[in-house]
């Protein structure tokens, strides 16, 4: 399992944590890796805390249990930091990426975490580019920049391709999402 990258997404119902995990898996598979994406379904409703997971590997992934020790955590809603232990099981050299207007230093003290902390205003970029607070796609850009787990260009192409299928009649949504990913890729900071 050591060569498998495990990712955990924290979000609220409706923010697209599951969709983001599916997009990461899809992009990983498009770049020739093997991947899993799965949500942790609870009795979720709009706004309730939800989790989703990824496993990415060069080898066949056989395990089907929950991810216990993710090396990468993405937080789509920073208010979750107060109610959920977003660092549960994360090793000291792990990485956390938070959707916030604040800086990484602000969070370093709050989280008391030795690993890598990245922040990006994904919600702001989503509102600016897509016109809605859907921070999931910009977080993909931040994820790739911060961790390098996927080829940026291939991820962008694959996500665009996938969005083209879903929003056939709304080209502005596709462009907005792509722009939001690009902006987040540029703006994510350590």
């Amino acid at each position: 399992m050591t060569d498998t990258i495990e990712i955990r997404w924290h979000g609220r119902g409706g923010q697209g944590a599951k969709t983001a995990a599916l997009l990461v898996a899809d992009a990983a598979i498009a770049t020739g890796k093997l991947a899993q994406a799965f949500p942790e379904y609870g009795p979720e409703r709009m706004g309730a805390p939800v989790k989703a997971f990824n496993r990415i590997s060069e080898r066949e992934i056989r395990v089907h249990c929950a991810v216990e020790h993710p090396t990468i955590v993405l937080v789509l809603d920073e208010t979750l930091v107060d109610s959920v232990n977003v660092l549960e099981g994360v090793p000291d050299d792990g990485t956390i990426i938070i959707n916030t207007e604040k800086s990484a230093d602000d969070y370093r003290q709050k989280l008391n975490f030795k690993g890598n902390i990245y922040t990006v205003n994904a919600s702001g970029l989503a509102v600016k580019n897509i016109g809605m607070n859907k921070p999931n796609t910009p977080m993909l850009g931040a994820l790739v920049k911060a961790t390098g787990i996927l080829d940026y260009k291939k991820m962008l192409d694959d996500t665009k391709h996938k969005l083209e299928k879903k929003f056939k009649n709304k080209p502005e949504v596709i462009e907005g999402n792509v722009k939001a990913i690009q902006d987040a890729y540029e703006e994510v900071k350590k």
Binding site: A25, D26, I29, A35, Q36, A37, F38, P39, Y41, H64
Partner: peptide
């Protein structure tokens, strides 16, 4: 298939 674990889990 196993509910959610496989039904809603994306794989290669």
């Amino acid at each position: 298939t196993d509910g959610f674990i496989i039904s809603h889990g994306m794989e290669t």
